[in-house]
Amino acid sequence: MARQAAAILLVEDSADDALLVSKAAEQTLGGVRLLRVPHGIAALQYLEGQGIYSDRTAYPFPEIVLLDLKMPEMDGFQVLRWIREHPKLKRLPVIVLTGSTLEDDSERAYENGANSYLVKPCDFSQLVETMKHFGEFWFGGTLLPNSGQ
């Protein structure tokens, strides 16, 4: 069986930001699929494979979650807590990608079990750099846990 391409689940409520992150990822993360859900509830459904997300060919289980913090209904902190308390998903690496530079937010993200915290740059060329280093680290030799299967 051919090896499946690695997948990232991007949880991001802003369509504009999601587009910029996808474009930056396209330029830097060759061979990695980026799939996006627009809010926290959809992230839970995606990770559990509910509804349309039961089709794991179209919606592969991700190696890594890129998580925005400020989202309506269920925010990133709640998603993080849910993942860390989930018996099958608890070790899934979650990297926060947010516009917030507030220390309160980064402290709370680590408190809730984030593996890493990245600030989303406003400038597109800097976002490309961020995605490049993100990809080089997490998909360039880092060993990732098994979760969710």
């Binding site: 890493s116 915290y117 990245l118 993100f134 080089e136 680290f137 030799g141 060993l143 846990p145």
Partner: peptide
């Protein structure tokens, strides 16, 4: 995060560079 110790000196220097760029600069 979790990394495997590389066997060659060049690969180890590359791992160290990635660690530096990611954990000491970007994160």
């Amino acid at each position: 995060s979790y990394l495997l110790k590389p066997h060659s000196t060049n690969d180890l220097a590359e791992v160290v560079k990635r660690l530096q760029r990611y954990w000491l600069e970007l994160n």
